[in-house]
Each structure stands twice: as C-alpha cells, then as structure tokens.
Simulated scan of single mutants.
Amino acid sequence: MLSEAAEFKALAVSRLAAQHAEIEQLRETAAANARVKLCRTSDSFVMLCFGSVAVL
C-alpha cells in the first residue's frame, strides 16, 4: 500500500512538472511572438490568441 502511494505521488509530481514546463514554454512563445498573446476568459481559462483566433 505504501509503495502504491509513493508511486502515485511520484507520478503526480512528474505530471505537474511536465505541465509547468509546457506552460513556461507557451509563455516564452507568447512573449517572443508579438502576434501571439495570452488571453483570459471569464471562466479563468488561459488561451493563446492568434489575431482573432483563440486556441485552447
């Protein structure tokens, strides 16, 4: 049981780290490209907006 909990925790931390890295990469892309910006919606989702097209 304890090893299953440790394995679950390690997997969860790994997934969070991967998500964080992806978010950082998207932020860098947005900052580097003036045509791309981060848009906040009313329900707090963050999207990449390319001109008038938003990508989820």
Results as ranks from 00 to 15, higher is better:
6 A>Y: 10
6 A>N: 08
31 A>E: 06
26 L>N: 01
30 A>C: 08
10 A>R: 06
13 V>F: 01
28 E>W: 05
29 T>M: 09
54 A>I: 13
14 S>I: 01
36 V>W: 03
51 G>M: 00
4 E>D: 07
50 F>C: 09
47 M>R: 09
34 A>R: 15
22 E>G: 07
4 E>P: 02
54 A>K: 08
54 A>Y: 09
25 Q>V: 06
35 R>F: 05
29 T>H: 10
12 A>V: 03
22 E>T: 13
26 L>C: 02
18 A>D: 03
2 L>C: 12
56 L>K: 14
28 E>V: 06
36 V>P: 01
2 L>G: 06
52 S>H: 15
15 R>T: 02
11 L>E: 09
23 I>R: 11
25 Q>W: 05
22 E>M: 11
13 V>C: 03
7 E>G: 15
54 A>S: 12
2 L>H: 09
45 F>Q: 15
10 A>T: 05
3 S>D: 11
25 Q>A: 13
31 A>C: 10
14 S>H: 06
43 D>E: 12
12 A>H: 04
10 A>L: 05
55 V>M: 03
22 E>F: 04
44 S>C: 12
39 C>L: 14
1 M>Q: 07
56 L>I: 14
21 A>M: 03
11 L>G: 03
26 L>K: 01
12 A>S: 08
4 E>Q: 11
10 A>G: 03
36 V>S: 01
10 A>P: 00
33 N>H: 09
29 T>Y: 07
21 A>N: 03
20 H>G: 05
55 V>K: 02
37 K>N: 06
39 C>W: 14
36 V>L: 08
53 V>I: 12
8 F>V: 02
24 E>H: 04
50 F>Y: 05
39 C>P: 10
34 A>D: 05
12 A>Y: 04
42 S>L: 08
23 I>D: 07
13 V>L: 05
16 L>S: 00
9 K>T: 04
3 S>A: 15
9 K>Y: 03
2 L>A: 07
31 A>H: 12
30 A>L: 01
47 M>V: 08
6 A>K: 12
12 A>M: 07
2 L>R: 15
4 E>V: 05
24 E>I: 09
20 H>I: 15
36 V>D: 02
27 R>M: 15
1 M>V: 13
10 A>Y: 02
6 A>M: 13
43 D>S: 10
6 A>W: 11
56 L>F: 07
47 M>P: 00
50 F>E: 05
44 S>W: 11
41 T>A: 10
33 N>D: 10
13 V>Y: 00
10 A>F: 01
10 A>Q: 06
8 F>K: 09
36 V>T: 02
17 A>N: 07
5 A>V: 13
45 F>D: 08
2 L>N: 09
22 E>R: 13
26 L>D: 00
35 R>H: 07
51 G>H: 00
15 R>F: 00
32 A>S: 10
14 S>A: 10
10 A>C: 03
